[in-house]
Nucleic acid binder design. Sequence first.
DNA 1: CGCGTGTTGCAAACGATTTGCAATTAAAAA
DNA 2: TTTTTAATTGCAAATCGTTTGCAACACGCG
Lengths: 153, 153
Amino acid sequence: MKKICAHPHPPRREKISDLTGRLRRESRKITGPRAAILEILHAHPHPLTNREILSALPKSSCDLATVYRSLHLLEKMGMVKRYHFHDGAARFELVGAGDNGHHHHLVCVNCAGVVEIAECFPEEIEKKIARTNGFKNVTHKLEFFGTCPKCQA
Amino acid sequence: MKKICAHPHPPRREKISDLTGRLRRESRKITGPRAAILEILHAHPHPLTNREILSALPKSSCDLATVYRSLHLLEKMGMVKRYHFHDGAARFELVGAGDNGHHHHLVCVNCAGVVEIAECFPEEIEKKIARTNGFKNVTHKLEFFGTCPKCQA
DNA sequence: CGCGTGTTGCAAACGATTTGCAATTAAAAA
DNA sequence: TTTTTAATTGCAAATCGTTTGCAACACGCG
Ligand SMILES: [Mn+2]
Ligand SMILES: [Mn+2]
Ligand SMILES: [Zn+2]
Ligand SMILES: [Zn+2]
């Protein structure tokens, strides 16, 4: 009976060495681009787009295609989670050690500022929804939107 | 004090004439493409992509660009709501009469089948999240994903 | 019927993401 | 350390969903 929504956010950050170790263990190479991308993700507390990651990288560390490919890999390995806010671009956030990464955000519709949210959709209700409809392995995507304090003119 | 999440789903369907009337009232023209698109939306109980709407339309009723433009218009007029499931494409569903349209879905990750969900994120928790972070006008996007009965091999 | 504005089709433009391929390189093997 | 091998990268082209410019067109009203 694993808990789906246990997120004592913010998750304790994993050491970079643990991250690279994880890669090495799955016989993936620790390349310059990957190390740099992990640094960026590790340094940022909120979901970043591929382009934002590229910009944050030391000047021309790698190609945008490499950022995309790296994040696919990290996602497949469960080291990052993918999020979608209101714009078209996917965003990625490092999954904390131990944490399964499931959590939600509150996004300002004006300035796009992000707040990490600890609350989750109530487990009992989700179970009821699954049971009622005969679905298995039900999860959810949930994001909040509103106007942040600064943007309330 | 307007209720955000009052959805006695499924909403009573509006008559097509009411829909076109709404358009006429805002001095928009009832064109062939628009009438056809409204028919399709009216006939379908779940969110459809622009391309799905086009395909469902009587052969070459209109151009894909027109479908996009029509749905933008309908969205701006509050007659359809936009949803995002796991694929890249936006989906649209007609908003029922009276209903503000806010509701959620349970989507099969295997066959993409959709179930309309009446449950919503608890209002009190959302209010707490808004208050705690000083945000105003907080809403949410919430979709459930799982394996439907048919797809449980 | 005839006008004026909203609409449409079509093709080109776009932004995000993916992919083919040849050149490169980290890491395992020798 | 050198060799070997498979993973990775850069670059450009391709894809996909969506938007837009523009000239031709057609509702809705008089
Ligand atoms: Mn987060
Ligand atoms: Mn629905
Ligand atoms: Zn949750
Ligand atoms: Zn809701």
